[in-house]
């Protein structure tokens, strides 16, 4: 295979990691995985845990599918993908229940819903089935980080403006409240996540020349 002659972090491989962060971001450009971006970004902590869970699932499902790509029967490939993603998700869920019980209660069904996260299935179908193990692994990590930084950015603003805290610690000083500042309760509601994502997309599109649509 030609790709084996490439160094592990050749320009092309580095592109797999960096593209999803900006030019081809799964949330802001492909608009996938929005559901979980709304649901678990009220606070930073669940957003970070969710990101790690997705990172784990994406990296390994991409790797496993890529390993099996020459032996998976074509007719049942979607089922095979689902089985692998689902079992990785169950493992994540079980580990969270054992080691991070509170977070797992908070994320509740959303861990299970990683199975239906379009980003995961999308990358398996579009990338891992046709690429080598290392490249698929990088692609999984790249996309998971692309997903993660948006999630964390949204959660940062929602927790800061919505409850004046970050990771559960009070950051807006009491003197602000004494002068009449109030937490914006609206930030805690799901629709505000969409608006924050919208603002991120707006900023990104005005900065990134490649994303500006030509007429």
């Amino acid at each position: 295979m030609a790709e084996e002659k490439e160094s592990l972090f050749s320009k092309r491989n580095r592109g797999l990691l960096s593209d999803p962060l900006n030019d081809n971001n799964p949330i802001t450009v492909q608009v996938l995985g929005i559901c979980s971006a709304l649901a678990i970004t009220v606070q930073l902590k669940p957003a970070i845990v969710m990101s790690i869970a997705v990172l784990f699932v994406m990296a390994f499902s991409n790797m496993i599918i890529s390993l099996l790509r020459n032996s998976i029967p074509n007719r049942i490939r979607i089922i095979v993908q689902l089985v692998i993603v689902a079992s990785l998700v169950i493992i994540v869920d079980q580990v969270l229940k054992a080691y991070a019980y509170d977070v797992s209660k908070e994320l509740s069904v959303f861990v299970g819903l990683i199975i239906t996260n379009c980003i995961v299935m999308g990358r398996l179908e579009a990338f891992a089935l046709g690429n080598g193990v290392w490249r698929s692994f990088l692609d999984g990590i790249g996309n998971a980080f692309g997903y993660a930084w948006i999630l964390i950015a949204v959660a940062f603003f929602r927790e800061l403006l919505g409850s004046g805290k970050l990771l559960g610690f009070q950051v807006v000083p009491q003197s602000f409240y004494d002068m009449g500042y109030e937490n914006n309760g609206l930030m805690l509601l799901s629709p505000m996540a969409l608006i924050v994502v919208g603002i991120i997309i707006w900023i990104q599109r005005s900065k990134n020349r490649k994303l500006i649509e030509k007429h």
Binding site: V80, I90, A98
Partner: peptide, 28 residues
């Protein structure tokens, strides 16, 4: 081949999940 693949996959995945579930059960 399709049946064989599906069969092996189910057994392997099943065993793996059963192992994970039983080994984490005490902490849960």
């Amino acid at each position: 081949y399709t049946f064989l693949f599906a069969g092996i996959m189910v057994v392997v995945v099943g065993a793996l999940l059963a192992f994970a579930a039983t080994s984490l059960k005490p902490m849960q």
